[in-house]
C-alpha cells in the first residue's frame, strides 16, 4: 500500500503516494489509523507529495482522520498537495479543518 509512516517524537507523518480513490483509500486509512493508535501523536502530517490523483474519496480520508484526532485533541497538517489536489480540498473547505501548506 502506498503509505510510508515516520514517527518523530509526537509527530506522525504519513507519506501518501499513487492515486487516491474509493478503491485505494481504505488501505491507506487502515495504515494511518494503526500508526496513530499506536503512537498517540499530538500532530499528524498527511504528505500528499507523492499523490498523482485524488477524488473526493481523499476528502473522506482527511475528514475521517480529522474526526479521530479531535478525540485526543491532536492537530492535522496537510502538505505537498498538487494544484489538482488543492483544488478539490478547497472545494471541500478542508482549510477550515487543517493547516494546508
Amino acid at each position: 500500500m502506498a503509505v510510508e509512516i515516520t514517527v518523530k517524537g509526537e509527530v506522525v507523518t504519513a507519506y501518501l503516494a499513487g492515486e487516491i480513490d474509493h478503491h485505494s483509500a481504505a488501505g491507506m486509512r487502515e495504515k494511518i489509523d494503526s500508526a496513530v493508535d499506536s503512537n498517540m501523536p499530538s500532530l499528524l502530517v498527511l504528505d500528499f507529495g507523492g499523490v498523482s490523483f485524488m477524488d473526493s474519496s481523499g476528502i473522506g480520508l482527511v475528514m475521517g482522520r480529522y474526526r479521530n484526532l479531535q478525540k485526543t485533541g491532536a492537530s492535522l497538517h496537510i502538505t505537498g498537495a498538487s494544484p489538482q489536489i488543492a483544488k478539490i480540498m478547497q472545494l471541500a473547505g478542508m482549510n477550515r479543518l487543517a493547516k494546508i501548506n
Binding site: A25, S57, I59, L91, A92
Partner: peptide, 9 residues
Amino acid sequence: ERAGLGFAV
C-alpha cells in the same frame, strides 16, 4: 467515510 461531495465535484 464518503464525503458526500461526488456530485458537487
